[in-house]
Design a protein around this nucleic acid. Sequence first.
DNA 1: AGAGAGCCTAAACATTCGTATAATTCTCCA
DNA 2: TGGAGAATTATACGAATGTTTAGGCTCTCT
Lengths: 224, 224
Amino acid sequence: MTGLSDSPHQGVKAEEPSGRAIVFVIDDDVSIRRSLSNLFRSVNLDVAAFGSAQEMLQGKLPEVASCLVLDVRLPGLSGLELQTELAKLNLHIPIIFITGHGDIPMSVKAMKGGAVDFLTKPFRDQELLDAVVAATERDRKRREVEKTVANLQSLFETLSPREQAVMKLVAAGLMNKQVAAELELAEITVKIYRGRVMKKMGARSLADLIRMAETLGICANQPE
Amino acid sequence: MTGLSDSPHQGVKAEEPSGRAIVFVIDDDVSIRRSLSNLFRSVNLDVAAFGSAQEMLQGKLPEVASCLVLDVRLPGLSGLELQTELAKLNLHIPIIFITGHGDIPMSVKAMKGGAVDFLTKPFRDQELLDAVVAATERDRKRREVEKTVANLQSLFETLSPREQAVMKLVAAGLMNKQVAAELELAEITVKIYRGRVMKKMGARSLADLIRMAETLGICANQPE
DNA sequence: AGAGAGCCTAAACATTCGTATAATTCTCCA
DNA sequence: TGGAGAATTATACGAATGTTTAGGCTCTCT
């Protein structure tokens, strides 16, 4: 056994502060990029600045909490288009829009799309900083749950097909006997697999296993 | 046995259409109230119109899916203030703002506060109708889960204090023996209570009970 | 005082669960 | 061809769970 007592599941840890965070700044105006970068660095945030959405999409997103600060109006891909693009790519980095010439429908679309804030120039530095803090915090939490789910998912994938099937049915509340009937196995076989499932998943109790199945979205549906 | 096969829990029913829905309209302009009311009634929606936020707060909210359509600028309580007020009262009716003289910060605040949409005059009827459909649908779903939780909660409250305690610990994954130690009871007593819990909660399996505990937010925390 | 309700325990039994040992069958591979 | 390694089953035993029957205890309500 490699990692024990290191339950990847439902860790209700103490509230860590946000730790390290990166702010991505996208603006075609160099002076704005620079002043925003300085502002963020002054409060101990890391910054990566780009002149266009495409540039930013080239690179890859980091492994730490981050957020995006961008002007709605950009050369090439606009801010809102970037938001749509990121959503398509399943990248859920929180976005803060800033704009000098926005309108209400634009702001509403951005907010509906999940933006954290939509600031109009001129704004006070503190407003932006507050938004950035909120955004990185949101991202940190999202990453946390995503990591938990990913851990569980990879654990689940280490199970053999039979073991996965048993886990689904057990999590659905079936007795060993019923699971055996469903899978056309002997009850003893189900017991063996069940034991292996508990061990491989690191579940210390049935309750534990059921909650794992819950967060994995396992419902024992789809006949085939 | 009183109610069987009538599980109040996790009903994955077929997608019902929205059924009946009520739209609350608040605007100080009588002619707007009338035209909005006509619009909604033309698509088979029930309507209740008011001239001010206070009037609307007098009455009580209905038991069916509903939403709120209101102007940001209102006599007395403004639209945004009403939104805040409703949030304080824990009334989560979805809100659609319409306005003739709004600005971006206003719309952003509304959206951050959970508004479904924020439309600027003039808008096409269809835009508003789409928003209303989305809003009532959201409300319908919210009511559904809230009803489920409320049902479970009231079931849980029919349990005696001991039974509740046993349920918490069982849901936490403890064995009967451990539960008994924790509560300073004999193991046999725990078994009795456990059986009663299953029966009273209508749980057909331990998995069922654990999921109920999950949606009730029972974690067996707080020492006392 | 008496009836009833909730709380607690005991003894006994049946069912279910978990694990260890051993055996069978099958595939894959050197 | 022999063997490693899975998937599966059987036997057997110990531990945990669930239910029934029975009884004692302490309240409250009437």
